[in-house]
Amino acid sequence: MAGNDSEKQFLSLIRDFASEKSHGERQIVNLKKRIEELRSELTGANAELQEAKLSKESAEQELKGYEVELAMNEASTQTLEARIKSVQDEISAIGSELEALMNEGAAKRNDFIKKMVELNACIRNFQNSVASAPNNDDYDGRTPSNGSVASLSHSLTHAYADTEMHI
């Protein structure tokens, strides 16, 4: 029996070995399949990572472009603000000049009207003196004296010159 037991143990050992060997081979096959699955997942993950890197680089480039565009727009805005201020200053200066000219024009117009009223009064006085001269006892039929005509002529010339200057 002792021989029989050894044989049984030996056969049991061979079966156990064969069983372990086949179990080990199945584990190796399963591990190889798992390695292939993991490699496939790794390849997919690497592809996604590359795609994410490209998207990131593209987004960064786009952001830099927007930053440059923003800087250009800010510079343009500052330039336009400076131009607007300059134009507003010019408008203010021209408005002041225009107001001064309008005031000067009003003063000249008032002066002109005053001189025209004075000239009109001189003309009426002359007309009245000419109209009353024939009725005057001192009138000898001659024209008015050279002094009064010269004075009137001088007044008319002066009024005409003032009129021309204000027109």
Score class of each variant (00 low, 15 high):
Arg83Phe: 01
Leu98Met: 11
Val87Glu: 03
Lys85Ala: 09
Ile84Val: 15
Ala106His: 14
Ser86Arg: 15
Glu81Asn: 09
Ala100Arg: 14
Glu97Phe: 00
Glu99Met: 08
Ser86Cys: 11
Gly105Cys: 07
Glu97Gln: 06
Glu81Arg: 14
Asn110Gly: 09
Arg109Ala: 12
Glu97Asn: 01
Leu98Gln: 09
Ser92Thr: 06
Ile91Val: 07
Asp89Lys: 15
Arg109Leu: 13
Ala107Gln: 00
Ser86Met: 15
Ser96Asp: 11
Glu90Lys: 12
Glu99Lys: 12
Glu99Ala: 04
Val87His: 12
Arg83His: 11
Ala82Ile: 12
Gly105Arg: 15
Ile94Asp: 00
Glu99Ser: 05
Gln88Asp: 10
Leu98Cys: 05
Ala100Trp: 07
Glu104Pro: 06
Ile84Glu: 05
Ala100Phe: 10
Glu99Tyr: 04
Ala82Cys: 08
Asp111Leu: 03
Asn110His: 10
Ala100Ser: 13
Ser96Lys: 15
Ala107Val: 01
Ala100Thr: 03
Glu99Phe: 05
Lys108Gly: 05
Ala107Phe: 04
Asn103Pro: 14
Ser96Asn: 15
Glu104Cys: 02
Lys108Gln: 02
Ser86Pro: 02
Ser86Ile: 14
Glu81Ala: 10
Ala107Trp: 00
Glu97Ile: 14
Ile91Ala: 02
Gly95Ile: 02
Glu97His: 00
Arg83Gln: 14
Asn110Trp: 02
Glu81Cys: 06
Ser86Asp: 07
Leu101Tyr: 04
Leu98Val: 01
Asp89Cys: 07
Ala107Arg: 01
Gly105Trp: 02
Ala106Cys: 06
Glu99Pro: 04
Asp89Tyr: 02
Met102Val: 08
Lys85His: 10
Leu101Asp: 00
Ser96Phe: 09
Arg109Val: 01
Lys108Met: 08
Gly95Pro: 12
Ser96His: 14
Arg109Asp: 04
Ser96Tyr: 12
Lys108Val: 05
Met102Tyr: 09
Ile94Arg: 14
Glu99Cys: 01
Arg83Asp: 03
Ser92Asn: 11
Lys108Leu: 06
Glu97Asp: 03
Arg83Val: 06
Glu90Met: 09
Ala107Lys: 04
Glu90Gly: 01
Ala93Gly: 04
Ile91Leu: 13
Glu97Ala: 01
Ser86Phe: 15
Arg109Gln: 10
Gln88Val: 08
Glu104Met: 07
Asp111Ala: 05
Leu98Trp: 07
Gly105Gln: 10
Gly95Tyr: 04
Lys85Ser: 05
Leu98Lys: 14
Ala106Gln: 13
Ser92Asp: 07
Gln88Thr: 09
Asn110Gln: 10
Ile91Met: 09
Ala82Asp: 00
Asn110Pro: 05
Arg83Cys: 10
Ile94Ala: 05
Val87Phe: 15
Asn103Ile: 05
Met102Trp: 12
Lys108Thr: 00
Asp89Met: 13
Asn103Lys: 15
Ile94Val: 09
Arg83Glu: 11
Ile91Thr: 03
Ile91Trp: 10
Gly105Val: 09
Leu98Thr: 03
Ala107Asp: 03
Ile94Pro: 01
Ser92Gly: 12
Gln88Glu: 08
Leu98His: 04
Arg109Pro: 03
Ile94Tyr: 12
